[in-house]
Design a binder for these strands. Sequence first.
DNA 1: TATTGTTATACTCTATAACTATA
DNA 2: TATAGTTATAGAGTATAACAATA
Lengths: 165, 165
Amino acid sequence: MTRSVAVGSRAGAGEDTPDPGRLSTTALAGDIPFLMARARAATSGNANAALAELGLKVRTFSVLWLAGEGQNPSQRELSEFLNLDPSQVVPLIDELEGRGAVTRKADPRDRRSRIIVITAAGRRLLRKARALAEAADDRSLSALTAEERATLGALLTKIVFPRAD
Amino acid sequence: MTRSVAVGSRAGAGEDTPDPGRLSTTALAGDIPFLMARARAATSGNANAALAELGLKVRTFSVLWLAGEGQNPSQRELSEFLNLDPSQVVPLIDELEGRGAVTRKADPRDRRSRIIVITAAGRRLLRKARALAEAADDRSLSALTAEERATLGALLTKIVFPRAD
DNA sequence: TATTGTTATACTCTATAACTATA
DNA sequence: TATAGTTATAGAGTATAACAATA
């Protein structure tokens, strides 16, 4: 009984709650892929707007976050985890490295690979960015209780990382 | 306690279940916006791949679907509901109209407005497209039971159409 | 021979502004 | 003066292919 579709992410995606309009009574309005597309446009729109004051976008923020987790990811790992082509990761690291937030280090066990490590300045930036992003997400998900957010997270995790359950 | 982030939609977004990898133990992996971005990349990737054999994409399919619901949407309504700029709707209608799937009709009550109506051929196309899309979505959401899908839909609806509950 | 990071290029989306015809 | 649709254009994001260094 699953239908389909997903759609666009536009300018002021997730600002206020606009008029649902006549079309919200259509079957499309209950379609999970459609809802997912709209929900993600709203959340990432809000997050991008909040991060803008630090000169970050969701993409660079994600990389910074992963670098800050102490796992020392390689660019290849970042590209796989973030669903980006390796060639798309390059300019993201370039920018963060240019700002002194991360550095590329040689992997002693494989000299082809570059390990991304966060700097002290990067850690400070990350701390501020996470606060801003949290606030933005809180707004994006304000219609849900804490319990509902946990449920949503669990369901999405099943979709994205099926075996992890 | 809500964190943040969302990411990219790449080539073979939602094909098989790849290795979660080391990074799936990071906090980002539990972040709702991140999960939402990955889940929507997977679902819309699958849907686009399935619709390709009909020469449709998720975008054009969505428009066709809404036109087929008998609400006679205007382009403005489509643009608001699909979160697309009015200028982005134009080429979508152009394409569907070029294929004879919909027509632009003048609104007798406001001659500025164009009402999009589905044709008989468009209805046949829509029927096939919905079958393909349903199958694709079933694959995208295969990790969830019917009940879980219903819960997910309800939660996403709260986010997207807050007052509708 | 395969893989990591990189560069280059083409293509699709997205964002903005301006124009027209109506209201 | 404001709105629906349209056109044009610039920018961001995405997809592909090729290359150097290393495995």
